[in-house]
Design a protein around this nucleic acid. Structure first.
Lengths: 136, 136
DNA sequence: TTTCATTTTTGTAATGATTACACTTTTAAT
DNA sequence: ATTAAAAGTGTAATCATTACAAAAATGAAA
């Protein structure tokens, strides 16, 4: 099992208390939290934590490829510690954000472009909301 | 050629002067503009136009499927009048946003999910920026 | 272990996109 | 022409994010 410290080290990010806490939270809560989610979750046990630090740390983690920033939610950026290839699904009923298997893709003509990164975002109804609708 | 009015009518949106102007601008300027881009472009010839109206009209267009909202840019939502299936590429050097051919995708296991919409976002270097880097 | 430079964190203030809201104007049907 | 509904407008509020300067922590050198 890879710990937060290992991940920080392997991305050349010095493992400060705050960085460890934030990455640890992301690793243990795969809910694609927003900055606010993270701040509110950690604040009780780290009262001195500043929201600016959460922003700073996350920018650092994203820039160094340790964490993904998801822009599927128009309001807030969401963060994901799972950097393996996978897609995301956002339910238009309940707003929930799910991990979903990455489709196998045959790229079209992308001549001249150097592609470094792909994000696939789905929108629709999640299983829970489909069921609720069918019961009505 | 489909006009702005045709598109509005076919999506059951009443064709007001402002709606026509905004959709026409989107149809004729395939640059994925932001709200501000659109407002600044139209303001000279429509001095009474309000930015709130631009927001309202775009929300209406998106909700009725006449226009796409792109969240590839973390700062602003960008709008696209091309609702045909295509992907988007954002250059990490110059920030430019390109249309790009939609990959042919074989969906993985999405049992239970009702998928209504897919967006594929690419990041990397655009041909211009690749060239510039190679010349250095 | 003291010193000092560098990095990191912190809190407050600013920014900037978006929305709320109340009022005015336009539209379309009678 | 009258009138009710829809659409547009301008200002003020909201809220995520960033800027910035001061404080704290870190780590290397003496």
């Amino acid at each position: 099992m890879t710990t937060a410290i290992d991940i920080l080290n392997s991305h050349n990010i010095r493992p400060s208390v705050q960085r460890i806490a934030i990455l640890k939270y992301l690793l243990e809560h795969r809910i694609h939290p927003t900055v606010d989610d993270i701040y509110l979750a950690l604040n009780p046990t780290m009262p001195t934590l500043s929201k600016t630090t959460v922003y700073n740390v996350l920018r650092n983690l994203v820039e160094n490829g340790a964490v993904l920033a998801l822009t599927i939610d128009e309001k807030n950026v969401r963060y994901d510690a799972d950097t393996n290839s996978h897609a995301h699904f956002r339910c238009q009923c309940c707003g929930e954000l799910y991990d979903i298997e990455q489709p196998t893709m045959a790229l079209g003509n992308t001549t001249g472009f150097e592609i470094e990164n792909v994000h696939v975002y789905y929108w629709g109804k999640c299983p829970k909301c489909v069921q609720i609708r069918n019961k009505e």
